[in-house]
Amino acid sequence: MATDYIITTEELTKRFNDFTAVDHISFYVNKGEIFGFLGANGAGKTTAMRMLCGLSLPTSGKATIAGFDVYKQTENIKRSIGYMSQKFSLYEDLTVRENIRFYGGIYGKSNAFIKEKTNWLLQQLNLQDEADKLVGSLPLGWKQKLAFSVAIFHEPQIVFLDEPTGGVDPVTRREFWNLIYEAAATGITVFVTTHYMDEAEYCNRVSIMVDGRIDALDTPVALKEKFNAATMDEVFLQLARKATRIDN
């Protein structure tokens, strides 16, 4: 049923002059799903994500995010989603508590909500002792976990994560994925891009973009079977090598 889909796209396309960055992609994302959005550099992931976040108007095709239309209801979309990229959106010269307060305020949350949830969040992240320290002084792994928590602080229906784990150590990377699992368990849909192919295995379903198209979309198990591959890395390489765009 359409109501169970949190994201739907139909022939979604974005052209820049004569360059088709996103080429008629059609897919859906289930509510509460962890959806991996893979593709080589230049395949069109960022452009597609910008359209889904209501930041860029499509050239043609349809898409809805949390039931809102990507042409007409971009402000509703922005309120329904959270976003985190590798370049964190945290203010280094604000404290942990001030950052949380700031984002809660931006999304129009009440003081009571912010206060209560801040305490809960600090406890969850085990950051009580660091609450009044500047974010700039925190280790990278903590910043990343905080950035994720801030991105879902306003309880969005979907969170978009753009290469959230780049550069962190393997232990922190896994702790980060535990946060993702926990968020998904509360019903938040997670839409994530990554260059770590082992992380593709942690997704419920994975799509792989090649030259602006979605060339494969399925569960990791089904994709490995279909491409006769032992790992998602092999699946990715088989598909990405077919790319004809020189810009990779």
């Binding site: 550099n41 550069g167 260059h195 990405a240 090598r241 990779n248």
Partner: peptide, 10 residues
């Protein structure tokens, strides 16, 4: 190879 996709890394 940081931030580079799997194909370019190879």
């Amino acid at each position: 190879t940081t931030g580079v996709d799997a194909v370019s890394r190879k």
